Simulated scan of single mutants.
Amino acid sequence: MGSGAQSKLSEASAAEVASAYGELPSEAQKSLQEALKLLKAKTSGTLTCRSKLSGEVMATLDSSQTWTYKEMAAALREKLPETKTQVIKFFIGEEAIDEYRALSDMGFANGSGEVQCAISQFDFGTKMTLEEAQPILEDITEKLNGLSKAMIMEIKALKSPPHGIILVGEAVACLLQAPRASWHDLLKMFGAKDFMEQLVTFNKDEVPMESLVELQWYLNHPLLDIDRLNRVSAGAVCMMHWARGMSMYAMLKNRVS
């Protein structure tokens, strides 16, 4: 595939790629499927998760060299549903992994290898009084007022969104418990007639524990730093404020004594 074709492909949306695939002759579709299978075989492997406490194997995961902590934790939680509301930490030897590096960058060829796991309860932080929490809650409310339909339209119009915007969409979908496996999933979420209403009326008093645990990976992601997002999209900044605000409110609710 030439560089021009690669450039066009990288700029195409999921819907455009699916449409182009459907227009291919059956033989071409078959050849493409075989090529994708070979590519997957080269980049996939098996990841063994061993308990750091007991030394026993907790699970064996079909992995990929592109996986980061997010995919590792999601796959382990799928195998061990009891961990969906718990904090999972992965270690290589005695060192905790960098949650934002891919397995291939940590020396796992094809994503294959072994990591140690430590499971713990979610920590809401030290207790505080309602008086201490009030200024923080007011700041959260103020930052949530900037989101508009125009900002959502700006994001929906992107055919090849920066990775930071995709991550913001995933963070929002995590709280709304909406599908987030692809940009196409996120566009469907943004395009829902009641999307803005879902954000405004979101029940911040009952954030699902599973969503709160998963959301932490996004909140600490270097690409989702507010100053960095400001250079990318005003809409993404507002949605990130919303996601952070919902998380912080849930955390504060559990810390106020």
Score class of each variant (00 low, 15 high):
Q121K: 14
R101N: 12
L76F: 06
P135A: 01
P81T: 05
V115F: 00
M106Q: 02
Q121L: 13
S112M: 01
K84R: 15
K84W: 07
R101G: 08
G146L: 01
M106H: 04
S148W: 07
I92H: 13
Q86F: 02
E132C: 06
T126M: 13
E78L: 13
K89Y: 11
I88R: 02
Q134D: 11
Q121M: 11
E78W: 09
L144N: 09
L80S: 06
L76A: 02
C117V: 15
K70F: 13
A74V: 04
D98S: 08
T129F: 02
F90G: 01
I119R: 02
A118I: 04
E71P: 03
L76D: 00
T141S: 12
A75N: 10
A102D: 05
N145P: 08
S112T: 13
G146N: 00
K143W: 09
E132I: 00
G113W: 06
I92R: 14
E95H: 10
N110K: 14
E94P: 08
N145M: 14
K70Q: 15
L80I: 11
A75H: 07
S104Q: 15
L147C: 05
A75G: 10
L103E: 02
G93K: 00
N145K: 15
P81E: 08
T126A: 14
F91H: 03
L144Q: 08
K79T: 04
S104K: 15
S112Q: 05
A102W: 10
F108A: 06
V115P: 01
V87A: 03
F91W: 09
F91I: 07
V115E: 00
G113L: 00
Q134A: 12
A75K: 09
K127I: 10
M128W: 06
F108Y: 08
K70E: 14
G107M: 07
E142W: 10
E82T: 12
T141F: 10
E114V: 11
I119W: 03
E142L: 10
K149Q: 12
C117A: 05
R77D: 00
L144C: 08
L103D: 05
L103K: 00
A75S: 12
I140K: 01
C117N: 06
A118D: 11
S104Y: 12
A74R: 03
R101W: 10
I97E: 06
F108K: 06
